[in-house]
Design a protein around this nucleic acid. Structure first.
Length: 776
RNA sequence: GCCCGGGUGGUGGAAUGGGCAGACACAAGGGACUUAAAAUCCCUUGAGGCGAAAGCCUCGUGCGGGUUCGACUCCCGCCCCGGGCACCA
C-alpha cells in the first residue's frame, strides 16, 4: 500500500483480509505460504501532502508507515514482517535504478521530445494512464495540458503483442484481462501509401482497406510534418490559423469536447492509389498525431467521422459497400447526402474488379493488390503508448543518467548506485518544467563517468509506478544488498502464485509489472515472463452507493469497528458483506450477526465433550458436505457463501431446525474441523478455541479436515414431483433410483394424483436425484 | 457512442452445463426468561386469496416478447444502475 496520512480505510482492509484468508486457507491445506508486505511511499501524493502540511516527506513517511503497521497488525494479517520492503529506502531504489539501467542498455529506455500530458497543478508530466477524461487523476478539476518536453520513455509498445497474447496463458480475472486487452487496443489493417504528383509519399493506417475506392479526400493531423511542405501559398494563411488554434487548444476540448468537425484545406492533392483520382488533402484535429501515421484516408461513405467532416465541408461521399441489411444504415437529414454505413456485412460496389466481394474478402484482396503496386502493406496497430517515466518532481528515485557535452548521455555505472536522492529544503516544483533537483548545484554537477569532465545529472525522477512494477521480485530477497533478487530465492517463490488486487490497477501497475518482468526475462535475469500466475480482482467497497473519498466525507475507518467488535468479527463481516469479487456497500447493520455466530461457536467449544459421543449419520453428512463446500468456496474466494455454510453447520450442531436424526452431540470430533475451517476467517478466535479443545500448538499447525465423499452422500433423496412443470408434491426415494421406478413412485403421491385424474400421461421427464415432471 | 458487470423479499445476499426461487444473515413482529431492561432462547416473516384447521390455490427474480415439459438462468428488443474506454482511423 501507499502509506497515506489518513491510515487504512475499510476498502484497504477488505482487500488485505480477502488475501489473508486465502493465504491462511492454503497454509492449512499444507502449502508453503509467503505473505509479504511493504510500503510504496514515493510519488506525487506523498510529496503534495508534505507540501501541504509543510514538512519533509522523509520525516512524514516513517510516521505514516508506523501507523499503517499498527493497523495492519491489529487486523491480524499473516504478514512476514522480516521481509518488509520500502520503495523509498536507498537499499530498494538502488535496484529500481538498476532496472532503469538494464532497460537503457537494452535500448528500451529512450529519451525523446514528445507531446506529454502536463498537469499544471502537479507541475509535472503524467503517463497516459494517469489522465482521466483529460483531467489529472489527482486533480479532477485540473485540465491536462499538452507540452513538448524531452522525456524518458520505456518502449512498452515493443511488447504490445506479447502483452496481449500472453493474457491467454495466465489465470486472471476476465474483467482485468479485458481491460488490458482494450488498453493495448490491437487493430488489424494496412498501411497504405498515397502519393502527390511530385512524388511526396503520405502513409495512412486503416482498418478498412476494402473501402479505398471510396477514399475521396485525405486528412493530416495539424502537427503532421508534411503539412508545412504541402500547403500551397493561397492556403497558407488558413492552414496556419487553424494549426495555431489547434495547438492552443487544451487536450480536454480537443479530445472530449464537442465532436463538431473543423479543419482547413491545404491546397494540395494526392492520388488515390486505387482509382488514380486526385483527392484533396485537408488538416483536421480529429486526426491524432499520436496514433497510426498521423494521417488518414477519408472514406466518408463508411466512417462516421469522415462522413460528418465531408458533410460539413461539402466533400464527395462515394458509397463502395452495399449493406446486407438496410437497418444498419444512418441516413442524413439532407436527401442529397448519401447515407452512412460503417458495418462489415456488405458487398463491394464502385470498386472496379473487386465489386461483388464481401468486405472481409475485399480487405485481403485489395491489400494484396495494393502491395503488388507498391502502395501499401498489412499492418497491425496498437493504442498502447510508450510509458513516460520522467517526473519533474523531487520525491522519487533519481534517474541514473549523466549528460556530458563530449560523451553525450552516459549511464551511471552500476557500482555507483544508488544515486541518492539528496536532501532539499525547498522541493516545491515550479512552472519551468525542470525538476527541483536542478536547484541543488552540488548534486547536479558531477564529473562524467567516462571522460571525467564536468557533466550534469539527469534531474528528473522516475514515475512511482516503476517502484511498484518490480517489488514482488524483491520480497523473497530483502536481505541481499548485492543483487536485486537472488536466483535461488526467486526460483523458490516466484512467479507470484496468487495475487489479489483492485481493478484500478488493471492498466497501470499490472501492465507495467508484466512489462518489466518480460524485459528482465528477455535479458536473462528471470526464468519466467509473467509475474502473476493467478490474479483475482476484488470488488470495491462503497459507502451509500458512492466511492469512499475524503471529499465526500464518507470514508469508513476500520479502527473503531475493530475496537468495538474485535478484529475477527470485523474480518468476517467484511467477507460476509457480499461476493468478494464484486464488493458492496458498507453498512454496519449486519455485523452483530457475525458476532452472534462466533458467540455460538464459543458456547459449543466450552460445552464440548471429550469422551465418547455418538455421531449420527446425518450430522456426519452435514460435516463432510461443509468441509467440501467451504474448501471449494475459499478456493474460489467465495467468502460470503463459505461463511453461510459454516453457519448452517453450527445451526445443525446446536440442534436448530434439526430433524430427529440430527441430535446434536457437541463432541470434539465435530468441533475440531469447524475450528480449523474457521481459522482463516477468524484466526485469533480459532486459536483460542483450539486451545480450549486441549491443543498445545497453533491451529495453523493443524491441517484442513479430510473430506470423505462416502460420508457426504445422501442415501435417501427427496424427489420433486412436477405436473406440467409445476411442483405438486415430493417423494422420498433411494439415491440413484432409475427413471421407471421414480415415475412409478411419483404418480402415487396423493397431492400429485389429483392433477393426473382424468388425464393421459403424455410424457415424463426425469432428472436423476432431482425431479420427475409429468406432462399431461 | 463502444466494451464489460449488475438489477431477486423491508435490507445484504443464496440458487445459473435450465430442474423445489428466497439458503445464510440483518431488520421487524410475537412469545419465553427477568422486578425491569440488555443479553440469550423459541416462533412468524415474498405478495394475494381460500379454509375452522391440517392444508391448498394463484401471482412473483427490472420491462416486453420468444424457445422449452420446465426459464432468475437461454434467445430477441428495451429501461435503469455501476465500471472501463472515448475523434484510436
Amino acid at each position: 500500500p501507499y502509506p497515506s496520512a489518513e491510515g487504512l480505510h475499510v476498502g484497504n482492509v477488505f482487500a488485505f483480509v480477502g488475501s489473508d484468508v486465502h493465504g491462511r486457507f492454503r497454509r492449512l491445506q499444507g502449502w508453503n505460504v509467503f505473505e509479504p508486505i511493504g510500503f510504496d511511499a514515493f510519488g506525487i501524493h506523498s510529496e503534495n501532502y508534505a507540501l501541504k502540511v509543510n514538512m519533509h516527506p522523509a520525516e512524514l513517511i516513517p510516521r505514516n508507515i508506523e501507523r499503517f503497521r499498527e493497523q495492519l497488525r491489529r487486523v491480524g494479517l499473516m504478514f512476514d514482517w522480516n521481509h518488509e520492503v520500502q520503495t523509498t529506502d536507498p537499499r530498494y531504489y538502488k535496484w529500481t535504478q538498476w532496472i532503469f539501467l538494464k532497460l537503457f542498455e537494452a535500448g528500451l529506455a529512450v529519451k525523446k521530445k514528445a507531446p506529454v500530458n502536463w498537469c499544471p497543478e502537479c507541475k509535472t508530466v503524467l503517463a497516459n494512464e494517469q489522465v482521466i477524461n483529460g483531467m489529472c487523476e489527482r486533480h479532477p478539476d485540473s485540465a491536462v495540458e499538452q507540452r513538448f518536453l524531452e522525456q524518458w520513455f520505456f518502449r512498452i509498445t515493443e511488447f504490445a503483442e506479447r502483452l496481449l497474447t500472453n493474457l491467454e496463458t495466465i489465470d486472471w480475472s476476465d474483467s482485468t484481462r479485458l481491460m488490458q486487452t482494450n488498453w493495448i487496443g490491437r487493430s488489424i489493417g494496412a498501411d497504405l501509401i498515397f502519393r502527390t504528383d511530385d512524388g511526396t509519399e503520405i502513409r495512412v493506417f486503416t482498418t478498412r482497406p476494402d473501402t479505398i475506392f471510396g477514399a475521396t479526400y485525405m486528412v493530416l493531423s495539424p502537427e503532421h510534418p508534411l503539412v508545412e511542405p504541402l500547403t500551397t501559398d493561397e492556403q497558407r494563411e488558413a492552414v496556419e490559423t487553424y494549426r495555431a488554434k489547434a495547438a492552443a487548444m487544451d487536450i480536454v476540448s480537443r479530445r472530449i469536447g464537442e465532436k463538431e468537425k473543423t479543419g482547413a484545406f491545404t491546397g494540395a492533392y494526392c492520388r488515390n492509389p486505387a482509382t488514380g483520382e486526385a483527392i484533396p488533402i485537408w488538416i483536421a484535429d480529429y486526426v491524432l498525431m499520436e496514433y497510426g501515421t498521423g494521417a488518414i484516408m477519408a472514406v466518408p461513405g463508411h466512417d462516421e467521422r469522415d462522413w460528418q467532416f465531408a458533410t460539413t465541408f461539402g466533400l464527395d461521399i462515394r458509397p463502395v459497400v452495399e449493406p446486407d441489411a438496410a437497418a444498419d444504415v444512418t441516413a442524413s437529414e439532407d436527401p442529397d447526402v448519401p447515407p452512412l454505413f460503417t458495418g462489415w456485412n456488405g458487398t463491394m460496389i464502385n470498386s472496379g474488379q473487386f465489386d461483388g466481394l464481401s468486405c472481409r474478402d475485399a480487405v485481403t484482396a485489395i491489400t494484396a493488390w495494393l502491395q503488388e503496386r507498391d502502395a501499401g502493406e498489412p499492418k497491425t496497430q496498437y493504442r498502447l503508448h510508450d510509458w513516460c517515466i520522467s517526473r519533474q518532481r523531487y520525491w522519487g528515485p533519481p534517474i541514473p543518467i549523466i549528460y556530458c557535452d563530449d560523451c553525450g548521455t552516459v549511464p551511471v555505472p552500476e557500482a555507483e548506485l544508488p544515486v541518492i536522492l539528496p536532501p532539499l529544503d525547498d522541493f516545491r516544483p515550479d512552472e519551468s518544467g525542470v525538476s527541483p533537483l536542478a536547484r541543488n548545484e552540488e548534486w547536479h554537477r558531477v564529473p562524467c563517468p567516462t571522460c571525467g569532465r564536468d557533466a550534469r545529472r539527469e534531474t528528473d525522477v522516475s514515475d512511482t509506478f516503476l517502484d511498484s512494477a518490480w517489488y514482488f521480485l524483491r520480497y523473497p530477497s530483502t536481505e541481499f544488498d548485492d543483487r536485486a533478487f537472488d536466483a535461488d530465492r526467486t526460483r523458490g517463490w516466484l512467479p507470484v502464485r496468487s495475487y489479489i488486487g483492485g481493478n484500478e490497477h488493471a492498466v497501470l501497475h499490472l501492465m507495467y509489472s508484466r512489462f518489466i518482468t518480460m524485459v528482465l526475462h528477455d535479458l536473462g535475469h528471470l526464468e519466467f515472463e509473467e509475474p502473476f500466475t493467478q490474479f483475482r480482482a476484488h470488488g470495491m467497497i462503497v459507502k451509500d452507493g458512492a466511492k469512499m473519498s475524503k471529499s465526500r466525507g464518507n470514508v469508513v475507518i476500520p479502527d473503531e469497528y475493530i475496537a468495538k467488535w474485535g478484529a475477527d468479527t470485523f474480518r468476517m463481516y467484511l467477507m460476509f458483506l457480499g461476493p468478494y469479487q464484486e464488493g458492496g456497500d458498507f453498512r454496519d447493520e449486519g455485523i452483530s450477526g457475525i458476532r452472534r455466530f462466533l458467540d455460538k461457536v464459543w458456547g459449543l467449544v466450552n460445552a464440548a465433550t471429550f469422551e465418547g459421543g455418538e455421531i449420527t449419520a446425518p450430522t456426519m453428512r452435514k460435516l463432510h458436505q461443509t468441509i467440501r463446500g467451504v474448501a471449494d468456496d475459499l478456493e474460489e474466494l467465495r467468502y460470503n457463501t463459505a461463511i453461510s455454510k459454516l453457519m448452517e453447520y453450527v445451526n445443525v450442531l446446536r440442534g436448530k431446525g434439526a430433524d430427529d436424526a440430527m441430535v446434536p452431540d457437541v463432541c470434539r470430533e465435530l468441533l475440531e474441523p469447524l475450528i480449523v475451517m474457521l481459522a482463516p476467517l477468524a484466526p485469533h478466535f480459532a486459536e483460542e478455541c483450539w486451545e480450549r479443545l486441549h491443543h498445545e500448538t497453533s491451529v495453523f499447525e493443524a491441517s484442513w479436515p479430510a473430506f470423505d465423499s462416502s460420508l457426504a452422500e445422501e442415501d435417501q433423496i427427496e424427489l420433486v414431483v412436477q405436473v406440467n412443470g409445476k411442483v405438486r408434491g415430493r417423494v422420498s426415494v433411494p439415491a440413484g433410483i432409475g427413471e421407471a421406478d421414480a415415475v412409478e413412485r411419483a404418480v402415487q403421491v396423493d397431492s400429485v394424483r389429483r392433477f393426473l385424474e382424468g388425464k393421459t400421461l403424455r410424457k415424463t421427464i426425469y432428472v436423476e436425484n432431482r425431479l420427475v415432471n409429468l406432462v399431461v
